[in-house]
Nucleic acid binder design. Structure first.
Length: 741
DNA sequence: TCTCTCACTTC
DNA sequence: TGAAGTGAGAG
């Protein structure tokens, strides 16, 4: 059976597709209703003893199996593993309960997402990884309280285009670049019971976005093309690799499964929230997004206009300097109106230390002393236009209104129904979130055996509008059947390696019975839930990447690129001693679920994980004037990182058992959250002023005229001093020069 | 465009 | 106290 993501999702219906297959987001209006709907075809179920499978090469498998089985059979803490971790044989896994559920998902911080969506949908990605902003958080309901679920998130290409920010708006700039290796992020608390999930806001704020194709924060599992379920390859990790200037769509998945190992064979319920679509960038293109983040992200507080951060100070210095220049300019213009050349005038303006200006009513305001208080400076800034040329210089502010138009338009193509709900319904979202968010719900199950999946020829992944095609095309990343590689020794000696345990029972299970398993070395970091899988498949994982984990053993060469990694996985893969693997896992900040995962209780080695803290407790919204251009919306308060929610006992369990894990949970964030509103303040778009001012600089104008030189030597000296105080302002005098002859 | 460093922030 | 998350700005 073949289903296409492009098929419209009709309320009351659902679609089935393989969540791990490369494909793009559907390009249809997201009008699907929330909730679970029977998939078009039932989830693929495994024979009792797992007939599907993967197998390890005999020589390699034996030692691994012996170790794992041994650990599993003992049933006691595997001391060599270091932390008190228990391994639970797969054979003890209880079949998934046949429970009834009707999952519904509500996107949290929707107001913020709506604003984000309206302002340009840019999301920064960096080599080292950047958190998503706004944070992706959801609240689930309708789950069976006792059944266990695994919650995941991934990000897929929204279309097959590359974008560019031109004329204050995003425009298609060609065909998309080759798709990056796809990764699935498993919520650290998985698997957990429905009750536990519903008791808190499920947050994915620890997921990072990167453009580093050789990122090590994950591992990839490659399956033979004829594998019944896992066609193509997919990786898991804490960082998702994206292409800059490309549009993406986050997806949220709910899988009812009591063990990560069952994930590949379970039914996925997928939810899409159109407003979370974004364009990955390495640097902000649209300052509206920048401002939105500055105003809402605690970590960017230093850049708020109301703060005492560098931004504020720098802006003040800049303004002061600019004012001085303006004065100079005016003065010089007046003095030289008779005979000096424009270039000289310019220089004179810039260099003249004399502040006194003739005929300038706002001169006083324009020439604040350096000792001027911040308050004063701010006050003056508020009067930007009269204080200086800010208004006329700044193009950013003037264009703000227009910018809004671009983004919505773009969105409309994919989600025509979206535009209408953003603003006016903002406040209502909390009241009746589910109905209003109307995320597309897609129930999926693993693909049936034999289904031929192919990828788009043009790119690794499928084309946006044609999921079927995408799936039909052979994966660019071909895997050679194989195997697990072992290089373990080296890694072992070099330090903590991700904890990978083999689920003891796994030996006889599906993963090891027949099909080759390909792994990408070096990519390893998983969420707790995933640790379970890692535990079960760890040994099969090619290698543990060391970079981020401090493991030097891994050769970067083997992981230079995803492709390389795949190709070399066999050679570089290493089998790690179980205990070391776990250490690695822990060191990478992976949380292990206390709920039914392989590790029933706190894993004390989670150094990195423990370090991770919950997101900021609270965040106040500072509305910048230009952000309110359309605003019919009342001032809203956002708490992107923390949403106050009742904290059920179950959440405390999380907290107690696994601090690091708990940190990722919404409830915890909520506890700390204090929706404090920051006082409204007048924001000044100083940045735009500076930018515009510097845009027309002419280096040549700096040359000093012999004639003027003698007269303004002192002035020049002083000016230079000022300039030195204002970083990046050196060229601006020139600009004023050329700009106003 | 991208990468890196910086000062600043939260926790 | 320090790790980690920020945008700005230089290159």
């Amino acid at each position: 059976m073949s289903l296409s993501m492009r098929d419209p999702v009709i309320p009351g219906t659902s679609m089935a597709y393989h969540p791990f297959l490369p494909h793009r987001a559907p390009d249809f209006a997201m009008s699907a209703v929330l909730g679970h709907q029977p998939p078009f075809f039932p989830a693929l179920t495994l024979p009792p003893n797992g007939a599907a499978a993967l197998s390890l090469p005999g020589a390699l498998a034996k030692p691994i199996m012996d170790q794992l089985v041994g650990a599993a059979e003992t049933g006691i803490p595997f001391s060599s593993l270091g932390p008190q971790a228990h391994l639970r044989p797969l054979k003890t896994m209880e079949p998934e309960e046949d429970v009834e559920d009707d999952p519904k998902v509500h996107l949290e911080a929707k107001e913020l997402w709506d604003q984000f969506h309206k302002r340009g949908t840019e999301m920064v990605i960096t080599k080292s990884g950047r958190r998503m902003f706004p944070p992706f958080k959801v609240r689930c309901s309708g789950l069976d309280k006792k059944a266990k679920y695994i919650l995941l998130m991934d990000i897929i290409a929204a279309d097959d285009c590359r974008y560019k920010f031109h004329n204050s708006r995003w425009m298609v700039a060609g065909k998309a670049d080759p798709e990056m290796p796809k990764r699935m992020y498993i919520h650290p608390d998985s698997p957990a019971t429905g009750e536990q999930w519903m008791s808190k806001v499920v947050t994915f704020h620890k997921l990072k976005l990167t453009n580093n194709i050789s990122d090590k924060h994950g591992f990839t599992l490659a399956f033979p093309s004829d594998h019944a379920t896992w066609q193509g390859n997919y990786s898991f990790g804490t960082q998702t690799i994206l292409n800059s200037m490309h549009k993406y769509q986050p997806r949220f998945h709910i899988v009812r499964a009591n063990d990560i190992l069952k994930l590949p064979y379970s039914t996925f319920r997928t939810y899409l929230f159109p407003e979370t679509e974004f364009i990955a960038v390495t640097a902000y293109q649209n300052d509206k997004i920048t401002q939105l983040k500055i105003d809402n992200n605690p970590f960017a507080k230093g850049f708020r206009d109301t703060g005492n951060g560098r931004r504020e100070k720098r802006k003040q210095l800049t303004l002061q300097s600019m004012r001085v220049f303006d004065e100079r300019h005016k003065k010089e213009t007046s003095d030289e109106s008779s005979s000096e050349q424009a270039a000289f005038n310019c220089f004179a303006q810039a260099s003249s230390p004399a502040v006194s200006i003739v005929g300038t009513s706002n001169l006083k305001d324009l020439c604040p002393s350096e000792a001027e208080s911040d308050a004063e400076a701010e006050s003056k800034e508020e009067h930007g236009p009269e204080a200086c040329d800010a208004a006329k210089i700044s193009t950013t502010t003037a264009e703000e209104p227009g910018r809004d138009k671009g983004s919505p338009a773009t969105r409309a193509q994919l989600f025509p129904a979206e535009p209408s709900r953003a603003r006016d319904t903002a406040r209502l979202d909390k009241a009746s979130p589910d109905s209003r968010h109307s995320p597309a719900t897609i129930s999926s199950s693993t693909r049936v055996p034999g289904a031929d999946e192919r990828r788009s020829p043009g790119r690794e992944g499928p084309v946006a509008t044609k999921v079927d095609e995408a799936r039909a095309i052979p994966a660019k990343d071909a895997f050679a059947p194989l195997s697990v590689q072992t290089d373990a020794t080296a890694h072992l000696a070099q330090g903590p390696l991700p904890g990978l345990g083999f689920a003891p029972g796994l030996a006889g299970q599906q993963f090891f019975n027949g099909h080759p398993l390909f792994l990408h070395p070096g990519q390893f970091a998983m969420g707790g839930a995933f640790s379970s899988m890692a535990a079960g498949m760890g040994p099969l994982l090619a290698t543990v990447s060391g970079a981020s984990t401090g493991v030097s053993g891994l050769e970067s060469t083997a992981m230079a690129s995803a492709a390389a990694a795949q190709g070399l996985s066999g050679a570089s893969a290493a089998t790690l001693p179980f205990h070391l693997q776990q250490h690695v896992l822990a060191s990478q900040g992976l949380a292990m679920s206390p709920f039914g995962s392989l590790f029933p209780y706190p894993y004390t080695y989670m150094a990195a994980a423990a370090a991770a803290s919950t997101a900021a407790a609270s965040s106040s919204v500072h509305r910048h004037p230009f952000l309110n251009l359309n605003s019919m919306r009342p001032r809203l308060r956002y708490s992107p990182y923390s949403i106050p929610v009742p904290v059920p006992d179950s959440s405390s369990l999380l907290t107690t058992a696994l601090p690091s894990m708990a940190s990722a949970a919404g409830p915890l964030d909520g506890k700390a959250a204090a929706l404090a509103a920051s006082p409204a303040s007048v924001a000044v778009d100083s940045g735009s002023e500076l930018n515009s001012r510097s845009s027309t600089l002419s280096s040549g104008s700096v040359s000093l005229s012999p004639k003027l030189c003698s007269e303004k030597e002192a002035a020049t000296s002083e000016l230079q001093s000022i300039q030195r105080l204002v970083s990046g302002l050196e060229a601006k005098p020139d600009r004023s020069c050329s700009g106003s002859p």
